[in-house]
Design a protein around this nucleic acid. Structure first.
Lengths: 207, 207, 207, 207
DNA sequence: AATGAATGAGGTTTCATTCAT
DNA sequence: TATGAATGAAACCTCATTCAT
C-alpha cells in the first residue's frame, strides 16, 4: 500500500484546518493513553496524523517531550473537568458522585498512576517535574474542595490531602475488569453511587 | 590451619545453588517490577543473572512467557502473604492494618494495576488469562475474609468484592510520592493506621 | 534626563550591521573549522547566526557551496596574512619565524590538510577545484618568496615548492597535543623559534 | 537487488574462515581510512563485510568503539613497521629513507593527524585516551631511535621528541596532491630521498 | 544444560533540502 | 529578504528470536 504522494516543503495553507501541532498532540495523547509510552512509536503517531516522523520531530524535539506535553494536556483537561463539577451549586455528595461518573465515562481506560509510572521510568528529570506539577494541581483542586466542605461542616475535619487521594484511588475501581472482561458494577451510575456512598460513610459529619 | 572439609569425588554441581531457572525467574521478576515489561530486555535479564540470553530462552520460550511466569510468581507470593496475615487470630481491623503495612514495606513500588495493564497490552490472550486467574485469586482471598467477617457480624453486610477492591485501591495510596518525592504520611505504620481507620469507618458494624 | 539623540524617519535597516550573507559565512567558517564538515549541520549554522535554515539556503544553495565559500574565504585570509608578513623588510629568517607565530596563534587548531581531506570526500568536482585553487595560491605565495630569496642568495638553490610545503608541514607541529593535552613547546614563540631554526639549518646558504 | 538469503542463528562453523570479528575490524579500518569517520556508516561496514548491522554491533557495541579499535589496530601496525625498519643494521640515514618509502607506499592516503582530529571530535573521552596512547607509542618509537643516534653521535644532540614529530610531519608531504592530482615528486623513492636529505641537513652531526 | 553467533525488524533521531508565503 | 512547515533518506542503535554446537 503506497501512501498518497506528498509534495516536499510547506503546503498551501488551508484556512479552516487545525494546526498540525495540535493534531499531533491530540493524536499522540489518544495513542499513549491506549497503549502506553513504549508501545507507541513516533512513527505510529506520525502515521495516525498522516504526516511523516520528521514532522512530529519538528514540533516535539524528542519522544519524551511529546509524552510530557501529552500528559500535561490530558491532566489539564481532567483538572478543568473536575473543577467545573466541583464549582456547581449542588450538594457536595452529589458533586462527588458526578465526579466519578464523568471521570469514568469521559476519560481514559486507565487511571493516572499508570501514566505517572511510565513517566517516572522514561522521562528526564525535568520533564518528569513538569508532569508532576500538573498532577499535583489535580489533587489540589479536589483537596481545596474538601477543605472548603470541612470548614462548612459538611464533612468531618481531617487530612484533606489524604481524603483527595483516597477518593481518586476509589474512583479507579471503576476501571477494573476481571478475566472475562466483567466490571464490578453494571453501569457507571451504579459505580458512582457505590463509591461515593462508601466514601461518604467515612467522611460525612455526624455531629 | 585446618583445611575446610571436602567430600570426595566430583561435587554434584553445587548442591546449595539454586537452579538456574529459579534464578532467572526471580531476577526477571525484580527487574520487571522496577522497570516494566518494555524497559527490560531479555539481555538485561540474562546479564543480571550472569548467563547468556540463550540460556534465558532455554527456560522461557518467549519474553511474554517469562513475564507471565514472573507475574504469576509475584502474585502467588502476594496472595500467600495476604492469606498468612488474614489467618491470624487477631481482630479483623488489626489484621487489615497489618496487611497494609506488609504490602507497603515488602513489595514493589507500585500497585498491581500497572502490571495488569502491561500484561493486557503485551501478552497473548492465553498468557493474559493465566495472569488474570492469579490476580483474581488475590482478590478472592480478601473477599472471602470480608465475607467471613460479615457473617460473624464484625463488619456490615455488603458487596464483599467491592470491599476487597476498595481496600486494595486504598492501599496503593501509600505508594504516592509528590514532585519532591514526599509521601502522604511519614511512616508505613502511620499510613497503615490512617488507611485502615478510614476503611473501617465505612464498613464496621454499628448495630 | 536627556533622550538619546535619534535620527528622524525610518532607519535604513541598521547601517552598521553586517549583511546577513557575511554573518553566515563567518559563522560557518568558524564552525566548520572547529568541528569539521560532517559535524556541523545547516541548522547549526543557522542557529549560530540567529536566522533560520531557510535563510542560510537563501544565500548558499547547498551545504557544499557554503563549505566551499567558507574554505576559500579562510584560505584567502591566510594567504593575505602570509603575504603581509613576507612583504616586510626584515630578514627572511625573521619573517619565517613571524609566519609560524601568526599562523599558530591566529588560526585554527588544525592544519589545512584536514580541510582538504573533508573537501575531497564531500565536495563536488567543481567545488573541489575552486578550493584547490585557493590552496595552491597559499603555497605559491610562500614558494615565490622562497624563489626570491634563492635568487638573492639568502638561501640555497633548491626546489622552492618542496621548501614551501616542508615549511608548512613543520608549522603544523605546533598544533600537536599529547594525551594529556600538553604541547611540544610551552609557548608559540618558542615553537616558532625552534621550527624556523630547524628549517633554516637546512636551507640557509653557507657558501 | 536482493541479498543472498541468509539463515538465522549461528551458521555452521567454517574451519578455515577468518573470525567475523577480524573481518569487521579490517574492513572498517580500510573504509574509515579512505572516507573518514562520519562518511562511513555502520551499514556501510556491515555490507562490505557481507554481514548485517546487528552483527557489527554484536562485536563492537558502538561506532565509536569500532573506530577506536580500528585506529589502534592501524597504529599498532604502523608502529611495528616503523620499529622493524629502525632495528635494521643499516646506517641511520638510510633507515630514515626507508621509513618514508614504506610509510608512503604501504599505508594510507593520508596522515595520522586526520584520524586524530576525527577522533578528538567524535570519540568519547576514554576512547580518545586509548587512541592517544597508541599514537604516542609511534612517536616514542622514533624518538627512541633518535635518542640512540644522538648518543652514538650520528646526529647532533637536540630535542628528540621534536625531531620525531618534525620527521613525521615532513613525511606527510608525500601525500600532497595539487588540483590536477600531481604529486610533489614523481616517485616515492624520490620523495623519500628528498625528505630525508632535507631532514638530515638539519640534524646530522658536523663536528 | 548452556552458549556464541547471527539476523530482521523496528526504534529514535538527524539532516539536507524544498516550497509557499 | 527571510521564514515556517514539511519531507525522504539515512544515521545509530536495540531487541526478540533462532540455531548449530
Amino acid at each position: 500500500m503506497k501512501q498518497s504522494p506528498r509534495v516536499l516543503g510547506r503546503p498551501r495553507h488551508n484556512e479552516n484546518a487545525k494546526p498540525t501541532k495540535d493534531i499531533v498532540l491530540e493524536t499522540a495523547t489518544r495513542l499513549f493513553i491506549k497503549e502506553g509510552y513504549k508501545n507507541i512509536s513516533m512513527d505510529d503517531v506520525a502515521k495516525a496524523c498522516n504526516v511523516t516522523k520528521a514532522t512530529v520531530y519538528y514540533y516535539y524535539p524528542t519522544k519524551g517531550d511529546l509524552y510530557t506535553s501529552a500528559l500535561i494536556a490530558m491532566m489539564d483537561r481532567i483538572r478543568l473537568a473536575i473543577l467545573h463539577i466541583l464549582e456547581q451549586p449542588s450538594p457536595f455528595k452529589e458533586r462527588l458522585e458526578q465526579l466519578v461518573e464523568v471521570h469514568l465515562s469521559a476519560t481514559v481506560d486507565i487511571d493516572m498512576k499508570n501514566f505517572m509510572r511510565e513517566a517516572s521510568i522514561n522521562l528526564s528529570e525535568s520533564q518528569l517535574k513538569e508532569v508532576h506539577i500538573s498532577e499535583n494541581k489535580i489533587y489540589q483542586t479536589i483537596e481545596q474542595a474538601m477543605q472548603l466542605e470541612m470548614e462548612k461542616g459538611t464533612i468531618r475535619k481531617g487530612n484533606a490531602t489524604f481524603f483527595a487521594h483516597t477518593f481518586m484511588a476509589m474512583m479507579s475501581i471503576g476501571y477494573f475488569k476481571d478475566g472475562e472482561g466483567k466490571r464490578l458494577f453494571n453501569t457507571v451510575q451504579e459505580t458512582a453511587k457505590e463509591v461515593t456512598t462508601f466514601f461518604w460513610q467515612s467522611v460525612h459529619n455526624n455531629e
